[in-house]
């Protein structure tokens, strides 16, 4: 790991002004992605801006029809929250499936979403539940947030402060985990809202996306067999040593059917 300077601001404003004044800065949240990346020298920021002391980035609150989770909230906190488990059981379940106990004790919601790893779990919830990403500057719709492999709508220096998840009537998350890392080879969040069904997919493409063909079929008839005839084209899907694009497309349908089955 190259040398860097470690900053520990206490306010969002301070964090942003340090960011603006540095050569090649990076925010540091749980560090469970950034530190391994720095060790491999795939990232070499001059300055780390540690978010752990910044006020207002933690906590889980409930507003009309929404669960709002601070960006610095660790995965273990979401996984073990009785209130989250009551409001959106699928979200607490998803958090409990991330990596392992030690990873969940350090990794945070904001870090996971800002990173847009194609195999990360939370992005499926952001898209599948139609969440809103609250940043230091604005609010960004979950549907437009993930743009490509490790690419999001965030501008340089823009800080995620919280994420607001609408509470569905019911939702289920199903993933096919990589047996070594637990990252999602494919993961699907199916959520029923009064306005209709939403399906968020992670792991399969370069970033999380809504599977509109699956949503349309489920809006017509909400049962697993309604998905039989839906084609999931594998064009642009990820293909690596873990799974081919074709296999991932197959998994998306299988996982969506299992999720719907659990919801029926």
């Amino acid at each position: 790991m190259y040398r860097f300077k470690h900053h520990r601001p206490t306010t969002i404003d301070e964090a942003q002004s340090i960011f603006a004044a540095c050569d090649d800065p990076s925010y540091l949240s749980g560090g469970m992605t950034l530190i391994p990346t720095m060790k491999q020298r795939l990232a070499s920021p001059t300055d780390l801006i540690d978010l752990s002391q910044v006020e207002g980035l933690t906590g889980i609150t409930f507003h009309s029809g929404l669960v709002r989770i601070g960006a610095f909230t660790r995965h273990a906190v979401v996984a073990n929250s009785a209130e989250v488990a009551k409001a959106i059981p699928a979200l607490a379940y998803l958090a409990a499936q991330i990596g392992d106990n030690q990873v969940r004790n350090r990794g945070t919601l904001g870090g996971s979403v800002a990173n847009s790893d194609p195999a990360a779990d939370y992005p499926a919830a952001v898209v599948g539940l139609g969440a809103t990403i609250v940043t230091s500057q604005r609010q960004i719709a979950g549907d437009t947030f993930f743009q490509d492999l490790f690419e999001t709508a965030l501008e340089p220096g823009e800080l995620i402060t919280a994420i607001e998840f609408p509470i569905p009537e019911k939702a289920v998350y199903r993933k096919f985990p990589n047996p070594a890392s637990r990252y999602a080879v494919a993961g699907v969040m199916v959520a029923r809202f009064p306005r209709g069904v939403r399906v968020g997919v992670t792991g399969a493409g370069p970033c999380a996306f809504r599977a509109t063909a699956l949503e349309n079929a489920l809006n017509q008839s909400f049962n697993p067999d309604a998905l039989n005839a839906v084609e999931i084209p594998d064009a642009g899907f990820n293909s690596d040593l873990h799974a081919s694009a074709e296999y991932r497309a197959h998994l998306v349908k299988v996982l969506a059917k299992r999720a719907v089955q659990a919801l029926c």
Partner: peptide, 12 residues
């Protein structure tokens, strides 16, 4: 809480 100490920086 259990953590992987190879992934915790001095400043953390």
């Amino acid at each position: 809480r259990a953590v992987k100490s190879c992934t915790v920086l001095a400043g953390q």
